[in-house]
Every structure is written in structure tokens, then in C-alpha cells.
Write a protein that binds this DNA or RNA. Structure first.
Lengths: 198, 198
DNA sequence: ATTAAGTATGTGACTGCTCACTTACTAGGT
DNA sequence: ACCTAGTAAGTGAGCAGTCACATACTTAAT
């Protein structure tokens, strides 16, 4: 079945992500990806010059999805604290929907040679952090966040929380709800960062 | 050169860790490990029935080192807060000395088949967390830690901090001092968890 | 002490497999 | 006619694990 290149590329990217979720990013071979799409292995190389390029396309896709989710999270409210909560929830949600995402950060694919891919993910993390920092700064200005902690440092604490949760989750304690636990612990951390009112 | 099996095993384990630091855990082939030790590739299989068994031995070694460092950290003082600080510093120090450690958590080696290895690392993390929880509980009893945060939850915040720092570091922002930054942010987090005295 | 037997450590050559990527060729759309 | 998306059949490299054989140590009987 012939399809337009654009469509095929999108199909392949989706299949790679799906496969990576199922079997881990490092197990995604060109053959496996191809047969998941339903074409021959050689066909992949019509669309991507190399496997690394394929992963770059995947990273682009993921970056787009994340950016969308972030924007959606920010659209819900104006309250800085709520926006931080929403951003964190969005991040946890994306991780839960794409469990391979944290694994990708340490995969062979990313850490060997493919410096572009690495840079793409570093950029993503920094963008997320910047969003958090901005909201925290607004929160301080609005007087609902402790002034003695710099927004940058508080943001490190919060993003670390996402990463710690992801590790915990992927290390495979079942009956561990990434989103539920994440929300719970996030609330605790936010309470610590919030100005006491009693 | 002939050596005792014990010695050789230790040599191999050390070489594997070293190689993993240099080229990433997934690039450590039996051949590479062997020639790093200075023996033939086949010789590895005199000492380990399979590559997975080799990695298990590495995990055992790492577990031992970590346990030692933890004990040493606890030996320094009786003050719960200081002990938490020392434990965290020890953990960051070990990660800095063995950068492959966080990568190992997500390596193909660990996440494919080798369920034993996975369990070994999960056990390690839980043991660390338990140590932190114990100190935090003592801290609460001594009245220097907020009571409204459960020790288990505070421990999650702290261990997440280690993991977040490790990710930040290994994503390759150079001029990022794992230990220095870690210490700084840890202090901030601890201040939040500490009873206000003013 | 010498030696013979047995065992632990080591080797080079090889097997069978998987993988990314190539090449020569084919069919559908315009 | 021509380009575009596809294919089947390779190619060469890298990998874990095996095997037949060699060489160093240990032990115990002479």
C-alpha cells in the first residue's frame, strides 16, 4: 500500500514510540519498527537516512506533544500555584502515557554518538524548568510563596520530584500510581514552599 | 599470567565498572571487558557462566561499596539532621565516583530479562530510603523536624533530589558540580523540612 | 625430592545469531 | 516518461557463548 511520505513518517514515529514503550527503547530495531508499521525493513531507509535520524524525529514529536500539554496546563488558570500543579501533573501524565520517556534519557540510543538527540532532550527539560521558574517567580510576587527560596532552586526541587517519581515507578514497584503518588507528594512539597498562614 | 579465581573475578568486576563509566553500561561487551583485564574473551566465561551473571557480580560489588559508605556516613555523628546530610553526601559522592550508576538503572542490561539485577538495585534504593526514614523519624522525635510531614514522604523528597541531581548531571551540563549543587539544594530542602525557630 | 595425576585457569578458532544499512529492481501515480 | 514508495536479497560488522586444547598450580604417592 502506497502512502505519502509525510504520513509514513508519522506512522513510523508513532510505531517507534509504541514499540519503545512495550520493549524498551534499546530494543527497537529497524526491523521491528518496520514490521510494526507493516512495511519491509528496507522501506524505513526511504524515510530516514539513518536510525539516529529516526529517533530525532521521535524526539521532535515528543517535544511537540509536551509543549502542547504544557500550554494546555497553563491555559486552565491564572493562579501561579495552580499553574505549577497543572504543569507537574501534565508532566507526570505524559510520562505515564509514554513510560519510555525517562528510559530514553539513559538509553544507549541517546547516550552514544547521537549528541543531537541528547541536546534535544536537555532542551526539553530546561524549557519545562523555565516554565516552572516563571510561575514560581509570579507566585512570590503574589506573596503566596516563601521569599527565602529562589525560584530556580525551588524549581530544581520540583523537577527532581518528577524524576524521582519516574524512577520509582519504572523500577517497577507495581501498585505504585505515578500520578496519584506524584500528586500527593507534590502537595506536600508545595505546602513546604508556601507561606504559612496560621 | 595465572591468577586465583577470586582475584580475577574482582578484577573483572572493577574493569566492567570502569568501562561502563567510560563508554556506558550497554557498550560493555564481553570482549571489551576481557581485553580491559588483559585476558581473552573466552576467559570471562571461566568465571561467570553468562554476561548477566557478570553484571550481578558488579551489582553485588556496588551494593557493598554503598553499604560501606552509608555506614561510614552514619558513624560521624549522632545528630539526625547531620546524619541525613551525611547519607545524602555519601550517595552523591558515590554517584560522582561511579557515574554509570544512574545509567545502570535504565540500561538495557538491567531492563531486559535480568530481573535479578533489577531486584538488586531496587533493594539498594529501598535500603537507602529506609536509612533516611529512620533518621528523619529520630529527628522528629528530637523535635528538630516538622511533624506535619511523614518521614516516608520527606524521604521521598530527599531521594528524589539525589535522582534529579544525577539526571541533571548526566544530561551533561558541564560546569555542573554534582556534589556542590547537591549540597546546596539539599540544604534548602532541609531548611524547609526543619522547624522554624525564629 | 621427584614425579605422576588431577584440577584450575587460560586460549584461539569458531558458531550462530542480530543488526543497520545497501543495492538492484518493481509497481503505482501524474 | 518519470518520479516516488516500495521490495527481496544481500553485506559486513559485532555479539554472546562453545570447544578442543594448552599450560600453570596442587597434591599425594614413591
Amino acid at each position: 500500500m502506497r502512502k505519502s511520505a509525510e504520513l509514513r513518517k508519522a506512522e513510523i514515529v508513532a510505531a517507534v514510540l509504541d514499540l519503545a514503550d512495550q520493549i524498551g527503547p534499546d530494543r527497537v530495531t529497524t526491523g521491528a519498527a518496520a514490521s510494526a508499521v507493516g512495511v519491509s525493513q528496507a522501506a524505513l531507509f526511504r524515510h530516514f537516512p539513518t536510525k539516529a535520524a529516526m529517533w530525532l524525529a521521535v524526539a521532535d514529536h515528543v517535544a511537540g506533544e509536551l509543549a502542547m500539554e504544557w500550554q494546555r496546563a497553563l491555559a486552565g488558570t491564572d493562579n501561579p500555584l495552580d499553574r505549577v500543579t497543572a504543569l507537574m501533573a501534565a508532566q507526570l501524565g505524559q510520562i505515564a502515557a509514554t513510560p519510555t520517556l525517562p528510559m530514553l534519557l539513559f538509553s544507549r540510543e541517546l547516550n552514544v554518538g547521537n549528541e543531537d538527540l541528547r541536546a534535544a532532550f536537555r532542551g526539553l527539560l530546561m524549557k519545562f524548568q523555565a516554565l516552572i521558574v516563571a510561575e514560581l517567580a509570579r507566585g512570590q510576587d503574589a506573596g503566596c510563596l516563601r521569599r527565602e527560596v529562589a525560584p530556580e532552586d525551588a524549581a530544581v526541587l520540583l523537577t527532581s520530584l518528577v524524576q524521582g517519581m519516574a524512577i520509582r515507578w519504572s523500577l517497577g514497584a507495581r501498585n505504585f500510581s505515578l500520578i496519584g503518588e506524584g500528586k500527593r507528594v507534590l502537595e506536600i512539597q508545595l505546602r513546604l514552599l508556601t507561606v504559612k498562614e496560621d
